[in-house]
Amino acid sequence: MSSDEKQRRVWDRQARDYDRQMSFLERRFLRDTRAWVGGQASRCWVTGSARRCLC
């Protein structure tokens, strides 16, 4: 088994639990961050350049 195949197997095992782990972390540490980010984004006009967004 090549090194790439071994690494792929490791990442495939990690991917199984990724969503569950991230869901816990988001609930625990980020709580209302998504709502805040969405509110910030809705105040900006996306014009293709982040420099033009005056949030």
Rank of each mutant, 00 (worst) to 15 (best):
R51G: 03
A50H: 04
R34L: 02
R20G: 13
A15T: 01
D17E: 12
R31N: 05
A41H: 14
Q7N: 06
S23G: 13
Q7S: 04
M22P: 04
D4S: 09
G48H: 02
S23V: 03
W45D: 05
C53M: 13
D32K: 00
K6N: 07
W36A: 07
G48C: 02
R34P: 00
T33C: 00
G38R: 09
C53S: 12
A35E: 00
S3P: 07
D12I: 05
S2L: 06
A35P: 00
D19V: 03
V46S: 08
A15S: 04
R20A: 15
R27I: 02
R34E: 11
Q21V: 05
Q21P: 03
F24S: 10
K6T: 12
G48T: 02
L25M: 12
D4W: 10
D17L: 04
G39K: 10
K6Y: 07
R52K: 06
D4G: 05
R16L: 13
K6W: 04
Q7Y: 08
S23H: 10
R51Y: 07
A41R: 15
W45M: 13
A35S: 03
R28A: 10
E5W: 00
Q40A: 08
M22R: 10
R52A: 04
W36N: 01
R8Q: 12
L25D: 01
F29Q: 07
L25V: 05
R13D: 15
R13S: 15
R51K: 08
F24W: 06
R27M: 08
L30S: 05
R27T: 09
C53N: 07
F24V: 05
C55G: 09
W36L: 06
L30D: 03
D19A: 08
C55W: 14
R34G: 02
C55H: 12
S3A: 10
T47G: 07
A50E: 04
M1A: 07
R34Q: 13
F24N: 11
M1E: 10
R43G: 11
S49I: 00
R27S: 11
S23L: 10
A15I: 01
R13I: 14
R28H: 09
L30R: 08
R20T: 11
R8W: 05
R43Y: 15
R34N: 07
R8E: 13
V37F: 02
